[in-house]
Nucleic acid binder design. Structure first.
Lengths: 152, 152
DNA sequence: CAAATATCCTTAACATGTTAACTTGTATTG
DNA sequence: CAATACAAGTTAACATGTTAAGGATATTTG
């Protein structure tokens, strides 16, 4: 039987925790979860987005995003308006308070990446990105194909 | 500013989802979450464990594990007894029903790993494991050292 | 155009992630 | 031994993950 330590999902999970370890407390000091940070980050980079696109870019399911946006709206971090051409769509953007909060946290985020790059080395970090991307691409591509799985 | 796509936590998250994609539905058919599967797997591999050790091996926080064990106990998948030498400790083991469920799912799990190895190649898979392990080791080692973080 | 379908988003319900407080049992210390 | 500190689990409270169902608007179809 495969060794418990050789579990790819576990390794990915633990690696993610290790990578986040130094940044999560900084987020918490400002009352942000890592998910809310992803929303902030996506809106800074892409500007106004509708909820579905935001959901895709942040890897958040719509029900989660829905609650997160409600929360961030109450805190005045984001603004939302209805798309005039499609009344179903809800367009989300950052308020100046949201931008300000991002500006406060961004240096910590950069410092974290510098830290990782220093520890691991630029080359290995790039190698890790490349391997992850390749894994994602190939698995998602092949997962899309055989929807009818057969017995092992 | 760093590109949103070049986010290591996001890549790790997406890779994990891709790796789990084909197995999660199989678990669900048997009413198991991936966390419950980790518990099953750890108990098969290590035998009887106390809750704290189980928590460490499965990367589950104690409050989560507490609820999960209650659930699995009600379903008759695990048994628990109090350590006679330390009445605080709770020792967990699999019932025969738990072992049987594991035996049913194990082939699917193996098939998943074969699938990944076929797609990615044995060499790259080993390379990925090695890089993740190195990242985890180095980050955790250095995170332990400087507990007092300084401004960026 | 009216009915059926599809899309966008929300809500519901339950499991898990996460921090803090609490309970009980064990170890330390005076 | 009594008081204190520590350790193992649980519970509480709230955010998020996840599936299913619902409400409103767009689109397609007959």
């Amino acid at each position: 039987m495969r060794n418990f330590e050789r579990s790819l999902p576990m390794s990915l999970l633990i690696a993610r925790e290790a990578v986040m370890a130094k940044f999560t407390p900084v987020l918490r000091e400002h009352g942000l979860s890592s998910q809310q940070w992803r929303v902030l980050r996506a809106l800074i980079e892409y500007g106004e987005l509708d909820a579905t696109e935001l959901s895709n870019r942040c890897c958040l399911m719509m029900p989660s995003l829905s609650r997160i946006l409600k929360n961030m709206l109450e805190r005045g971090l984001i603004a939302r308006r209805t798309d005039s051409k499609d009344q179903r769509r809800s367009l989300i953007s950052l308020t100046s308070a949201g931008e300000k909060l991002f500006d406060t946290l961004a240096p910590w985020n950069e410092a974290r990446y510098d830290h990782i790059e220093n520890i691991l080395g630029k080359e290995k970090l790039e190698q890790l990105y490349a391997l992850l991307d390749e894994t994602i691409d190939k698995l998602n591509h092949l997962n899309d194909q055989d929807k009818g799985a057969s017995a092992p």
